[in-house]
């Protein structure tokens, strides 16, 4: 009941801001600078009928998700290894700290020289996502209950059971919260890298073209596409993590 009420309130809030946006665009009467939601949706509808639209989405999504999954997998594995091998954690910590602190733009310029524009977004997403997942996974592993580990040793539980019932419930909430942040960050940094690298048939290229030709409606339409894609991937990926968590997840995490 409460959820239904909350959804209703959220819908009203969104509708209110859409109205404000439309009214402002009507008052400004300048489609070069500011377009309303109606123009944006019209532009989106028109572009959806061309193959270029879908190819751009496919290419960008493929690169961004490849970067995200590579970073996710390697960060989870590295956090697991450094949880056991403390000297390796000490060795890796400055690198992770560096990856967290260096501005995306610096990485973009460097990688543009080293890797070229085609795979730039893949590497940038990797660099942005890896530290977030690595740090969250590491924190989660620190939350493993030593009492439960002792219990598992006494009862002679297998390594697999320890992982499923002791380690998984400890790290999964941290991993989920990290994944939530990293997915949003991945899309933002990935598209930003594409705008600088301008790989052919990509969302970045579409946004760049919109800027060059002052197609503000197209710019807004592509922004909406990025938001929707980011939300879609976030929901899908978190659902997979929730399935992996099964009954070990509690309350909020299962939603």
């Amino acid at each position: 009941m409460k959820n239904k009420k909350d959804t209703g309130k959220k819908t009203v809030a969104i509708f209110f801001w859409l109205c404000v946006w439309q009214i402002v665009s009507v008052i400004m009467k300048d489609s070069l600078v500011f377009v309303g939601p109606a123009d944006m949706l019209r532009s989106l509808w028109e572009q959806m009928h061309g193959m270029e639209f879908w190819i751009s989405i496919g290419n960008s999504a493929l690169r961004i998700m490849a970067g995200f999954l590579a970073a996710f997998g390697s960060a989870v594995a590295m956090a697991g290894i450094t949880f056991r091998v403390k000297w390796l954690k000490l060795l890796l910590d400055p690198v992770v700290q560096l990856a967290k602190s260096v501005p995306v733009a610096s990485f973009v310029v460097l990688l543009l020289i080293l890797a070229g524009s085609e795979k730039l977004s893949l590497f940038i997403v990797f660099l942005m996502v890896f530290p977030i997942i690595y740090v969250n996974m590491g924190q989660g592993l620190e939350y493993v209950d030593p009492g439960m580990l002792e219990m598992s040793r006494v009862f002679g539980m297998s390594l697999w059971k320890k992982f499923l019932y002791i380690y998984r419930p400890a790290f999964l909430p941290f991993l989920m919260s990290g994944a939530r942040v990293a997915l949003g960050m991945g899309w933002k940094s990935g598209v930003a890298a594409e705008i600088i690298g301008i790989p052919r048939h990509s969302i970045g290229e579409r946004l760049y073209m919109a800027k060059i030709y002052l197609n503000t409606d197209s710019l807004f339409a592509w922004t909406l596409v990025i938001i929707l894609l980011s939300m879609l991937f976030e929901k899908g990926f978190l659902r997979i993590l929730r399935l992996f968590g099964g009954k070990t997840l509690k309350g909020e995490e299962t939603k």
């Binding site: 009492g147 439960m148 002792e150 219990m151 006494v154 009862f155 002679g156 019932y165 419930p169 009954k247 070990t248 997840l249 509690k250």
Partner: peptide, 15 residues
Amino acid sequence: RFSAVFQENRLFEFL
């Protein structure tokens, strides 16, 4: 092979 009851139970509370 041991089995034990600990002072703090140490159950898997999600099971």
